[in-house]
Structure formats: C-alpha cells, structure tokens
Design a protein around this nucleic acid. Structure first.
Lengths: 148, 148
DNA sequence: GCTCAATTTAGAATAATTCTAAATCTTGAC
DNA sequence: GTCAAGATTTAGAATTATTCTAAATTGAGC
C-alpha cells in the first residue's frame, strides 16, 4: 500500500478550540480570525467588520460581534478595553501588555509583562482567576515630544 | 486684636488639584466627587448622574461627563474600563487593582497590586508612563460556585 | 433526505458618549 | 465695583457602539 500524505491539519487549533467551547468553526469565524491576524493593530469591531467585508461582502455587523465573542470565549482572541469608546481586539495570546497613549489613543504591544508577578496577588477565598490584564497609560513618543 | 480662627481648609486637595491642571472648582465638580466617595461601588456615568441629581436636581448628563473628565484629568478619580459597556469611575487613588467577574459583571477592589513590579517594565525610548492599570478577570465566588 | 440546534443576516432598538449653541458664572484688569 | 474674556453648565440633538429580534440558512447526526 502506498504511503498516503496525512491530511493537512485543517485550521487545526482554531477548530479545536472552538469545539472545546462547544462552538462550531464557520467561514465567518475563520474570516474574522484571519482579519485579526493579518493586521494586528488592535482594530475595533467596526474596523474588523470593514476588513472582513472586503473579503466576504455578505458578512454582517452582528456576525462580526458574534464571531469576536466566540473567539474571545474560546481563548483565541483578547478583548482590549482601554478607554471610553470602542473595544479593540487582539489575536496575540502570548503574555503581553498594552500601552495606551492618553493623548492620541494609539496602542502599542509591550512584550514584557508583569503578570509573572501573578504569584504576588492573593485573591480572597472563592475567586477564580482566569486572566491578568496589564494596561500602561501615558504618552507615546510623539505626544511626549510635543508635550515638552 | 482678637485671635481669628483660621479659615478652614476649603475642600483643600480637590481645589488644589483642579487648579494644578488649570481647572476650576465648581459646585458640580465637588458634588460629583462627593457622590463617588460616598459609595465606592464603581458606578457608571449614568449612576453618578442619578445620584448627583438627587442632591442637585439641575445637574445635566453632559456636566457629569465634564466633571468626571475634569476629576480624571487632575488625578482625583480613575476611569475603569473592564468590558464593552459603560465605563466605571473609582475615587480611590491608592494603588489597587480591580477584579471583574466575566460572568456577572461585578467589580471588586483588590488591595494588593503588582504595579510595584513597575520596575520590571522597560518601555522603549520616548514613552512616558503615567499609570499602570491591573485588571483581574475571572469568576467571583458566587459565579465560581455555580459554575461547578 | 430530515430534523434540530447553531449560526447568520438585516435592520431595528437600545445604550453610551459626544457635540452644539446659548446661558451663566468667575476671574482678572481696570 | 464694572467689564470683558474665558470657563463652565445646560438641554437636547446627534453620533457611535453594541445588542436584540425574527426570519433564513447551514451543518451534524440520524
């Protein structure tokens, strides 16, 4: 019998992770996930909608929210809320924090994280911790220079 | 000449802090600040509006937002954004973090903080850091028990 | 092929926040 | 004290962000 190429992993982890949360892999969810990975600039739901729409014109806003929620639920995407105004989405699940410029609203990934300091936090009995989010606020280099 | 009682410190630090940011102390700003300190349950702008309105019926929503912004700007209040949905406000400026229950949306103050780990974070050249915000996400004791 | 539940869709509805323009207040210069 | 200039407040309209609804579509398991 000839050796048969093993079936290429079909979008492996995304499918698995969705399934693990009792969710299905759909073309829309796949598309939204791709959009996020393509340009990791912390887009808002609306930006994701526009980008996804350019590839998949029939997709609707409600679906984008549904997909984002599904991806967040199954741990493929992080929600980032830094200020009033639209929530942003980040497909980088590695430990990292976000720097938010209070002046111009830009967001930067900061690869170091202090959630290693995890150990330092003692929650009262009964709390179940899932995620530590660290947001740095201040001025980005441009705005800091102007503020002089 | 008789000794005259020295004028009692007039809302000292609030006034000073506002002034330091080029802002004036107004009855509305004072009221909003009082509302926040009276019940530190991380109210939304809308809740602050309702509470302030009960003491000062003519106050408007726009003013509440203005006052909250002023208080945040001068460092008397922290904005807390934990999820989609309304921003919350916290008049406790001591180092502390917030625990957010992803299930029921309740918020708890966690007095320990890891921002002492401040030292651990090295920002690229040019960034000016003002504040480290630590948000803990997970399940509160009630929801954790139910999730069993 | 059929059934059931999950998902998507468009659009309406709601919620949160910002904007606008006019009225009011405060401060500093005279 | 009086006035002008600028800051603040106000109501309500406008905008933005998100959620809801009900009908149509899809896909998995039988």
């Amino acid at each position: 019998m000839n050796a048969v190429a093993t079936k290429p992993p079909p979008e492996n982890s995304l499918n698995e992770r969705l399934a693990h949360s009792g969710l299905r892999l759909t073309p829309q969810r796949q598309q939204v996930h791709e959009v996020l990975r393509e340009k990791m600039d912390h887009p808002t739901a609306d930006q994701v909608f526009m980008r996804a729409k350019s590839k998949m014109p029939e997709i609707s806003m409600a679906t984008v929210y549904n997909c984002l929620d599904a991806l967040v639920t199954c741990g493929m995407v992080r929600q980032v809320t830094l200020d009033r105004g639209a929530t942003r989405y980040c497909p980088n699940m590695q430990d990292h924090s976000h720097f938010y410029c209070d002046e111009c609203g830009s967001v930067y990934d900061i690869l170091q994280t202090i959630s290693a300091a995890d150990a330092g936090i003692k929650l009262p009995r009964g709390f179940r911790l899932k995620l530590i989010e660290t947001n740095l606020h201040g001025l980005c280099p441009d705005c800091a220079a102007k503020a002089k």
